Amino acid sequence: MNKNLQEILNYYGSLKEPFLFIISYDLTEFYVKPLKELPEDIKYEIKEKVSSKIDKKEELTKYPISFKEYKKAFDSLQKHIKSGNSYILNLTFKTQVETKYNLNEIYEKANAKYKLKFFEEFVCFSPEKFIEIKKNKISTYPMKGTIDSKIENASAKILGNTKEMAEHTMVVDLLRNDLGIMANKITVEKFRYLDKINAGDKKLLQVSSKISGHLEKNWNEKIGDILISLLPAGSITGTPKKKTVEILKENETYDRGYYTGVFGVFDGSSLNSAVMIRFLEKQKDGKLFYKSGGGITCDSNLEEEYKELLDKVYLPF
């Protein structure tokens, strides 16, 4: 399946044909379509700047995984960390939710840098850029670390937190190595800068970094090679990546599907893409599930991580 996806992406890239691509977390599912052939049931929007203004609190009824179930997975991950099998793992779960809005209304109202509605299957409103390629420069923007902006001295607390610093540094190192597979002259242009994002009834500060490298001039002919070499994204897996993915599969009680995969657009000369976090999925029986998670390290606090899982379940209106 991977090879087929790789060939399709390389093919459209070599033609300089503008296209949309949507790739699942484990690369087993994908959708690639020239923009001129895109069905009406698929909508996307990419904006570099969005407002963090909140008009009003939108109610979202949550039926999350129990604290006991979460603790079981958390404790298992801590054992793996203590055994040296992984240093950081992005643990995620799905939360059943109820809302008065349908997927299309959520897509239209959502305030986010990257928005995607995929038929009647899911809607994503992600704040996290994956990779961007302009000319022959590739950049990635790992996002790791979150705090409620209303907390006193929130900026200083998140940037001065040793657990958050270690977590973010490990992801930056992982992404530097990932970029080095296909690019050279890798540099960390910005390290741990803050973005303010709308999180429903609150505003969150999220910590990101910018890492860049240089590609060959014919990079458009190798879009498939580039994406496959970088997936799954380091910020939503952990390090070392291969072993961490195995551990997460053992401990997460569901299949991520397209959640934490990537979507993006090649416009014929440049590429922009996002990690599919902030993700609401509609099952065939009509039930809605919101998927969310956070990074676990040896310094993680069980109660705080469980709270973060639930805090990330929101509608960004």
Rank of each mutant, 00 (worst) to 15 (best):
M1H: 05
K3F: 00
N4Q: 07
L9P: 09
Y11N: 07
L15F: 05
I22G: 01
L27W: 12
L27G: 01
Y31P: 14
K33D: 06
L35Q: 09
K36W: 06
K36D: 15
L38I: 13
P39Q: 13
E40T: 11
D41R: 15
E45P: 08
E48W: 15
E58C: 02
A73L: 05
F74D: 12
S76M: 08
K79C: 04
N85R: 07
S86K: 00
Y87V: 04
L91H: 06
T95W: 14
K100L: 05
N104M: 09
K109G: 13
A112T: 03
Y114V: 08
I133K: 15
K135W: 04
S139Q: 03
I147K: 02
D148M: 04
S149R: 14
L174G: 05
G180K: 07
M182E: 15
T187C: 13
F191N: 14
N198F: 10
D201T: 15
V207L: 07
V207R: 00
I211H: 00
G213P: 06
D225S: 12
P232T: 13
G234S: 08
K249A: 12
Y254P: 08
V262E: 00
F266I: 04
N272C: 08
K284V: 07
K284A: 01
K291P: 10
N301T: 14
Y306V: 01
V313A: 12
Y314D: 06
F317V: 15
